[in-house]
Amino acid sequence: MDSGTESASADAWDGEIETEIGHDEYDPYGTLTLIGIYFVIIALLWVFMYFVEFLGEGPTVM
């Protein structure tokens, strides 16, 4: 959308919905995938912190 010609709504509810999906038809497996990826990243970061904190054996800030 260019400036000067904008009149459309900023949200996607106007004319962009192909199929309405109700409560019972909706299965958020894409969300499960994304959250799963996030948990894997968090777990790997925790492993990384283990190396930083305990196996580095350097003096900490304190």
């Binding site: 962009e16 919905i17 192909e18 999906i21 909706y26 958020p28 894409g30 969300t31 994304l34 959250i35």
Partner: peptide, 15 residues
Amino acid sequence: AFTVVASMEHGARQR
């Protein structure tokens, strides 16, 4: 995180 992403996914699938 779950609820908001699931709501966005709902939008994407409706589109």
